[in-house]
């Protein structure tokens, strides 16, 4: 085990996978010479050359379109979209092409593309550098959606994503890139896609989060436990496929759920969890499933701290749900 930043863990996964499999290629804006705007791809071009680490024009549709073509040809491209807020010019390539190729070709052409991209607020980036659009991709049939919250998971999930046969939207919590450090297993480390992690076991209430919000959830859970509410904390890690069994097992035990995300509330992932639980496990519920989410407004620049759920807001929801 070594202590690493989340960013360092991602960089390590890219280095190891490129070394292991020469079909893995990286492409994107400034990923080569500069090593990426956040330096996630640092050192790759020096080590693997310009043929496998490609600086592209500022053209997201082109980046994803080229990656799809490479994947159909047998490569394993890992394109980077500099900020997920810029992914919309490539939305057509992603939902109309990437998500559908395997299905449309009757399984003849899997499209193993991993689209890596930083998401989320907390860096005073305003509304073009702070969005959390995971629900767009979770809603789209044919895509996997992964969001790590720790350095170890960042390495393990990115490795699994690159080795998978299906397209993955890999969302990286950019505000944790350098601020979060943790133990990362040395050598090969794989975290399976579709398995949540029970971060803390508890009996009174299930708190569900993912990505950058896990830091707020950890903080809120700790405070709630001090108040006598025995919180079970779950990190979903992958939103599609998501680990319904882990959620169900926890609901059956606690009967109370709070789900946290920074994306807007309407049609966010919290809506799906609430709907699923209301559909499949309502008899176990002691209280309505409570959503703590971003607001249904564009991401604000000055009101960023108010917009994003924080530990006190999560704690309020925990208290109210526990007392329902």
């Amino acid at each position: 085990m070594a202590i690493q930043t989340l960013l360092g863990a991602l960089n390590e996964a890219l280095h190891s996978e490129m070394e292991r499999d020469d079909r893995v290629v990286v492409l994107g804006e400034d990923v080569g010479k500069v090593g990426g705007v956040f330096r996630v791809t640092e050192g790759l071009q020096a080590k693997f050359g310009e043929e496998r680490v490609i600086d592209t024009p500022l053209a997201e549709n082109g980046i994803i379109g080229a990656a799809i073509g490479m994947a159909l040809y047998g490569l394993r491209p890992v394109p980077e979209i500099q900020f997920v807020d810029f992914i919309y010019p490539a939305f057509d390539q992603i939902v109309s092409e990437l998500a559908k190729f395997r299905y449309r070709s009757g399984g003849q052409y899997p499209a193993p593309v991993v689209v890596r991209t930083p998401y989320g607020g907390g860096i005073k980036g305003g509304h073009y550098h702070s969005q959390s659009p995971e629900a767009f991709f979770v809603h789209t049939a044919g895509l996997q959606v992964v969001i790590p919250s720790t350095p170890a998971d960042a390495k393990g999930l990115l490795t699994s994503a690159i080795r998978g046969e299906d397209p993955v939207i890999f969302l990286e919590p950019k505000r944790l890139y350098r601020t979060l450090k943790g133990e990362v297993p040395d050598g090969e480390h794989l975290v399976p896609i579709g398995q949540a992690r029970v971060v803390r076991e508890g009996n009174d209430l299930t708190l569900i989060g993912y990505g950058a919000m896990m830091q707020e959830c950890l903080d809120a859970a700790e405070r709630a436990v001090k108040e006598g509410i025995d919180v079970e904390l779950i990190d979903l890690r992958t939103l599609m496929p998501f680990d319904w069994k882990a959620i169900q097992a926890s609901v059956v035990k606690t009967g109370r759920i709070v789900i946290v995300h920074e994306a807007p509330r309407t049609c966010g992932f919290g809506a799906e969890i609430a709907a699923l639980v209301a559909e499949r496990a309502i008899l176990h519920l002691e209280a309505p499933v409570r959503r703590v989410a971003g607001f249904d407004t564009p991401f604000p620049y000055t009101l960023e701290k108010l917009y994003m759920p924080d530990a006190p807001r999560v704690l309020d929801a925990i208290r109210e749900t526990a007392a329902f």
């Binding site: 809603h139 049609c267 799906e272 609430a274 709907a275 209301a278 309502i282 519920l285 309505p288 499933v289």
Partner: peptide, 24 residues
């Protein structure tokens, strides 16, 4: 997944929890 139906189901269980006699 995360469709309009999910949002509506989520809001029904949030705001009419005690009125429900069956799963949404």
């Amino acid at each position: 997944v995360c469709g309009m139906a999910s949002e509506i189901a989520a809001r029904i269980q949030e705001d009419a929890f005690d009125d429900l006699d069956a799963p949404v």
